[in-house]
Design a protein around this nucleic acid. Structure first.
Lengths: 112, 112
DNA sequence: CGGGATCCCTTACGATACTG
DNA sequence: CAGTATCGTAAGGGATCCCG
């Protein structure tokens, strides 16, 4: 993304982070995998009743492409696919936790 | 935003944070105001050569609505308007810093 | 100088149907 | 079971012109 400021460098990191976790369902998916470990596709789907299959696949693919999620396919009939965070994915924990707590403070702030 | 998981509560904070700083130019604007203090509209515009006036106004209005930025109008001819972070806006500092450093680690990670 | 109003385009998001 | 393919919609972002 071209931002055009003299010292893009400062915010390039934030932009990169946003591009990775900015998707509508991504924080939720990451949180689930972070706290519940390995999950099958169908399990994730059941935990996210409002997501469509297409979107779940899409978001998981992007998270995989970005190296945060590992996809493991078992060659069986019926198919079985498991998802879990990579080591790199787990390093997001403090960031997510920070954003989470600030967000709650913000919600409180806006209520007044 | 309705997400539909059983325990939305956990990620509501992150979603709230994303809604506040998720705009394309917002992290950049926040960073500038955070590190350079008060800025006039025209100054911000010059520091962001690629943004249009419309978008700058739009993003600043949303940041103001969300209580992060204070807008101060001087009743003069020609008009003069200054923007700066509110006390609440400044509390974003650690979050932005965290996201920034993780983003850089991520960029390094993806390079290999 | 610092906007507002309008129109347009791309992208993210989503519903539905079908498949190895 | 875990997807793909296709199509449609809504929102974010942007260009341009006008105004107090």
């Amino acid at each position: 993304m071209r931002l055009g400021a003299q010292d893009d460098k400062t915010t390039d990191g934030i932009v990169a982070t946003l591009e990775v976790i900015g998707g509508k369902w991504k924080p939720l998916i990451l949180f689930i995998l972070l706290h519940e470990g390995t999950k099958r596709f169908g399990e994730l789907r059941r935990m996210l009743p409002l997501i469509t299959q297409g979107m779940l696949t899409n978001q998981l693919r992007e998270l995989e492409r970005d190296g945060l999620v590992e996809r493991r396919v078992y060659q069986e009939i019926p198919p079985k696919v498991e998802y879990k965070l990579t080591a790199h994915g787990k390093t997001l924990d403090p960031v997510l936790t920070d954003m989470c707590s600030w967000g709650f403070k913000h919600l409180d702030f806006m209520r007044d």
